[in-house]
Design a protein around this nucleic acid. Structure first.
Lengths: 314, 314
DNA sequence: AGTTTATTTGACTTATAAGTCATTTTTTCA
DNA sequence: TGAAAAAATGACTTATAAGTCAAATAAACT
């Protein structure tokens, strides 16, 4: 009897889970359709009716998933900011790679992400969203803050403390070149390779930085001016998870390199494979698990491996 | 009797003129108020009623000046693009100035223009204008094309033919840094000096260009990719007037320098004064006339002077 | 199969803002 | 001063799109 009840429960749970998946898929379908339409025609020029029609459902149905149009656009931002930025910023990269090459690779990954979520980026670039949604404004602000934090972190890693006086100038330049390349990627169907863009961008930062270091250029920007851009990067929010994940990756690569065994090379390849898979829009969890299993064979890595696993497969 | 009629006529003309001025002022008042509101709240979030209320007139009255909201925004663009860009691009500058300094000065003038018409630039930056006004899209496209033409002209003047293979890369970089500085100027109340920004910008272009010339960087962009940006710069339209005016200025300065007289220095000062005055939002025509009169005393300059006068005081 | 429950629908309400026009107010001018 | 012309007004019409809900349809369950 108990057994029976148990089975009944698990079927129930199974079905509920199945249903939730179906629901989630529909929600996702709406989000994706809406993003396409918003990117194409703009937020204010796209009606809820159009969105519903394009999907082939009724307006009432649409409103059963999203309370309002504003709720819809906020959901879109939540959905995609997660996908694009978390995945782009928090990449597992071998720390032993030269800093320059490493940064270039990071930019490359970001450009790849941008290409993958072209519609969302297009919509985002258009800017013109809901009237003055407090919530959206906050998200946008935090996002920009996170970009700057990330830039600062990486520039410091690349140049050390000597950039301090030129920090804002370099960050601003980097950000502006970065944005303009992004625009090129998004608005044209050019053959531009993310890898080339990444290298180019880093090269240009290096040149500009060099000019500052040699004292040939004077900085223009300072803390005071840039206050609106420096967010008190929510240590509670997404940024903390970025740092933890970043640390887990670094620790793993460091440990592998410290092994000084012949297998080390192979472990790096496996770690790289995990990193690569995680960046995909639909990572294969099983593959990742398998890779982790391979790494777990090496007892000395177990601590780092399980920490990273906890970060990546929650 | 004839006298009387004549007087009557001239009073009539005088009053009509006065009225037209009043009308024009009102039109201008509307344009300026609308630009402020559009910049602050966005095009779609600003109703015609709000605009009318802010000025203290009725909606009906508003519609007697502008047929529709779209007509209003188009009029705004026509009004300000004229002011900002024509005045910023076509500056009389002493050609004997070192090319580098000269370009910096040109950027400076542009940044000054941007500051002067901050609201318009803000509105323009927001982008989100009328649905899909053919006319506006065309204007925007032509504007961007003109900016690129101007950049190309000036980069070629600065570096000569050797930039040809890197032309698009340099132009794109310049444009992106330029835009980002513009954004800084507009969105913050920073103490940034247009002169500093101009110098900085040129310095950065020079460094980047140098890197290309030394073969250390490879160009990423080419004609094919940049097709959407290269407008068949309407030779009939505003661009032709730019070139003619530019030529008139150059000719005058060249002639002055060719004089090799002791007065030459003074003439340069006078020409500079005219250039400066022309850049103001409300140039003093009388002052300009006076300056021209001073120059006209020098018989050898008369040709160049009258040509420039024709360009500036139509 | 028949009943209950959940989902979907699209006609309807409501809100907003563009655009109109008969009427009022102001200005012009003899 | 007062008639004619010009300008300004705001109540009204119209259009659009967000958001609601009773009824219809489909799915789940016994």
């Amino acid at each position: 009897m108990r057994e029976c009840v148990k089975i009944s429960w698990s079927i129930h749970e199974y079905m509920a889970g199945f249903e939730r998946v179906a629901m989630m898929n529909k929600r996702k379908v709406i989000l994706e359709m809406a993003v396409d339409l918003f990117a194409e025609h703009g937020y204010n020029q796209t009606s809820m009716q159009q969105i519903a029609d394009s999907i082939g459902i009724s307006k009432g149905s649409l409103y059963s998933f999203f309370q309002s149009k504003e709720d819809l656009i906020i959901s879109i931002y939540e959905h995609y900011q997660q996908l694009v930025f978390e995945r782009a910023f928090v990449v597992g990269l071998d720390g032993n790679m030269p800093a320059e090459e490493r940064l270039a690779k990071q930019f490359q990954v970001q450009f790849e992400g941008i290409l993958e979520y072209k519609s969302y980026m297009k919509m985002h670039m258009r800017g013109e969203t809901a009237k003055n949604s407090e919530k959206l404004a906050g998200m946008e602000h935090r996002m920009r803050g996170r970009l700057f934090s990330w830039l600062q972190y990486n520039l410091q890693r690349l140049f050390g403390n000597r950039i301090d006086p030129y920090k804002w100038d370099l960050m601003w330049m980097t950000q502006s070149i970065y944005s303009s390349y992004m625009m090129l990627l998004i608005s044209t169907d050019s053959e531009l390779k993310p890898a080339d863009l990444g290298k180019h961008l880093v090269r240009q930062i290096m040149i500009l930085a060099e000019d500052f270091f040699e004292g040939k250029s004077m900085p223009l920007l300072d803390d005071e001016m840039m206050k609106p851009f420096s967010v008190d990067m929510d240590r509670e929010g997404a940024f903390i998870s970025f740092e933890k994940r970043e640390k887990a990756w670094t620790d793993l690569y460091d440990k592998i390199h410290s092994l000084k065994r012949e297998e080390a090379g192979e472990y790096v390849i496996i770690a790289d494979r995990i990193s690569e898979e995680c960046r995909k829009s639909k990572p294969d969890d099983l593959l990742i698990k398998g890779m982790f299993r391979l790494l777990a064979d090496e007892k000395e890595l177990s601590g780092e491996v399980s920490e990273l696993k906890k970060q990546l497969l929650p």
